[in-house]
Simulated scan of single mutants.
Amino acid sequence: MKKFYDMIETPAMLIDEKITLNNIKMMQELSNRKGVALRPHIKTHRMTYFAKLQMEAGASGIACAKIGEAEVMAKAGIEDIFIANEIVGISKYERLKMLNRKIKTLRIGVDNTFQIDQIEKVFNGEKPLEVLIEYEVGEVRSGIISDEDLLFLAKYVNSKKNVVLKGIFSHEGHTYKASSMEICKEKAEEAYRRTVRAAELIRDEGIPLEIVSVGATPSIMNGAYFEGITEFRLGTYIFFDLGQALAINDFSKCSASVLASVISKPTDSRVVIDAGAKALVSQNRTEGICATNGFGYVKDSNNVRLKGLFDEHGIIENKKFSQEISIGDKIEVIPSHICPTVNLYDKVYLINDGYIVKEIPVDCRGKSQ
């Protein structure tokens, strides 16, 4: 093993091995205590290496966002995959048909009859495709909203021979904008209550429903739960990031950082690094417990944030920090949002006590189709 600061050219993504393993263990144990299955969402790391570690720790399966991710994960030997997203297009269902033949369990998200009709057509004579209905709980994104539409879709799916309704899922992403940890938990538990109620409405129609899947890292870390949930489905907990750390007021769980070099100090307060928008995504949450107030956080600093990003340059405006650092020094930046940041890299460096353990390919990078 070699010291990473000396060996790694910047910008580069680092993953702290010890912290990551502790995060995996922590969330698995939390789920076990609640008596619910844990299905990690691999859109955060997009690496088969970490998906396998999560499965070995006790995960029931994985969640993906895209077919491309699922195909890579299946090739690596993962047999239980839920694509927590709506998929549209005959060519995509042809890919799902092939994937469904290869692995034990494949499920996707649905919220409309157009999808069901395409599945019914493509999967004729095949092993039926299992689906979960997405239920909108406040994020204002995809998902069924009204009880009438929910029951109509559930009955529509139940009338088909090539589609099997297995459950319902929701995502309480709107809780990121909660003004406090307590309100985050309250909003999440209301979202869970609504999701469980939606499942009960379907069951009351005589339609069996096995899975009630929810999840977002801040709400579950802040203790949110509701009786009737069968599965936690969340991703960021493996690495955390600036927004997620602020949501629980704890930076000790941040295991991913971008290593960058100081390349310029044009004024007595401005520090320029070689990590811009192509190395750190230009997402800046502006409100709530996940508000980042910048585009990254300098690790182990006194609250030093990146003020701005150009394509190839990151900008820090902090006179005291500028006095403490020199051109050529390397710093670690905790990203504002880790999920899209990982997708900027071909590989990450696994680090332990300041040494490089191994290089890990981001083998789902770009697999967004």
Rank of each mutant, 00 (worst) to 15 (best):
L242R: 06
G243C: 07
Q244F: 11
L246A: 11
S252K: 15
K253E: 14
K253S: 11
C254M: 14
A256I: 03
A256C: 11
S257G: 13
L259S: 03
S261V: 13
V262F: 06
S264H: 13
R270N: 14
V271N: 01
V272K: 01
A275L: 05
G276D: 02
A279T: 00
L280S: 05
L280N: 05
V281S: 01
V281G: 00
S282R: 11
Q283D: 10
Q283R: 15
R285M: 15
R285T: 15
T286P: 02
E287W: 12
G288L: 08
I289V: 09
A291E: 04
A291T: 09
Y297C: 03
K299T: 09
K299I: 07
K299F: 06
D300V: 12
N302T: 13
N302A: 14
V304H: 03
K307H: 15
L309N: 06
E312G: 10
G314W: 02
G314C: 05
G314I: 04
I316H: 02
N318K: 05
F321L: 08
E324N: 13
I327F: 11
G328S: 10
D329W: 09
K330F: 08
E332P: 12
V333S: 01
P335R: 00
P340Y: 07
P340L: 06
L344K: 03
L344E: 07
L344T: 04
K347H: 08
V348W: 00
V348S: 05
Y349R: 04
L350Y: 02
N352K: 14
N352Y: 07
N352D: 08
Y355G: 10
I356T: 06
I356D: 08
V357N: 00
K358Q: 11
